[in-house]
């Protein structure tokens, strides 16, 4: 498997991407389906049943249907991608994902030419996901991408971390990873992918449209109402760790062309 070390930007920023430890990656998570605390997912996700698991791909595709997770994984070239993950809360990690390009999964179902957006949905199962018993968000969790963002080679479906199957608190069995967007876009434990011609109504955007835009590209120049976005703290540095500068598109400048002519302050 080829190893892509964070894309071309890694060299440009002169940063060596030292991955976070497995323990860091699996003990500090936002996965509100298991609770709003950072350790709630690690504490509660063991309740989740992940087999059997299938993903319904429907909407504007040639062959809609339920695709078994095992069958999908068996068909794909699994490779390692070491990506920065930047949370909108201004912390970040470096994660060695295993996965495959989302474009390859969408190709299985054959997107129709009129498909303009991709909508993703997380499992809704309150009996195994205790956070879903409270209406803190409009369950199930929905996220979305424009079709060109979804087809971009940096966008992956991740199936593992450090050569381990995806831990449940990180979104087992399969989750999206869009490294140039804030972490909440990278939806976990996906059960449905719908290709549409209208922009999906995404969960955090519905909860607070002024705080969470549809695009949510990492952008140090656009401040969030709650957190400044010009710097971030890399998890794992301990009590005296310094803040580091946040990079435009989280350092993945190769996606800039997707937004040519767009006002990224307006479309935050």
């Amino acid at each position: 498997a080829m190893s892509l070390i964070g894309g071309a930007a890694a060299a440009a920023t002169d940063e060596t991407l030292e991955p976070n430890t497995f323990e860091e990656i699996t003990s500090y998570n936002n996965f509100y389906e298991f609770g709003t605390g950072k350790t709630d997912p690690a504490d509660h996700a063991h309740q989740l049943t992940i087999a059997p698991w299938s993903i319904r791909i429907d909407g504007l595709v040639d062959t809609p249907g339920d695709y078994a997770a095992d069958d999908i994984i068996a068909q794909m070239d699994i490779e390692e991608r070491i990506y920065r993950l930047r949370c909108v809360e201004a912390w970040s990690m470096v994660i060695p994902w295993q996965g495959f390009e989302l474009a390859d999964l969408l190709a299985l179902a054959g997107p129709k030419p009129e498909a303009r957006f991709v909508e993703f949905q997380t499992l809704l199962r309150p009996e195994e996901m205790p956070g879903q018993k409270f209406p803190i968000l409009d369950w199930p969790y929905i996220e979305g991408l424009r079709i060109d963002e979804a087809m971009h080679p940096l966008t992956i479906m991740a199936t593992g971390i450090y050569d381990e199957p995806m831990p449940k608190q990180n979104g087992a069995p399969m989750r999206l990873v869009v490294p140039w967007k804030y972490g909440f876009k990278s939806i976990k434990s996906i059960v449905r992918i719908t290709l549409t011609d209208t922009q999906p109504r995404t969960t955090w955007n519905k909860a607070a449209a002024a705080e969470y835009g549809f695009y949510a590209n990492v952008n140090p120049n656009v401040s969030h109402p709650r957190w400044r976005q010009d710097t971030e703290r890399r998890v794992g540095g301990g009590l005296f760790s310094s803040r580091i500068d946040t990079l435009m598109f989280n350092g993945y400048d190769e996606v800039a062309g997707l937004y040519d002519g767009m006002d990224l302050e307006q479309n935050f």
Binding site: S27, K38, R233, G236
Partner: peptide
Amino acid sequence: AVSGQMGVEPIN
């Protein structure tokens, strides 16, 4: 916090 018993992000 300083001895790592407040999790991996002790500042917060």
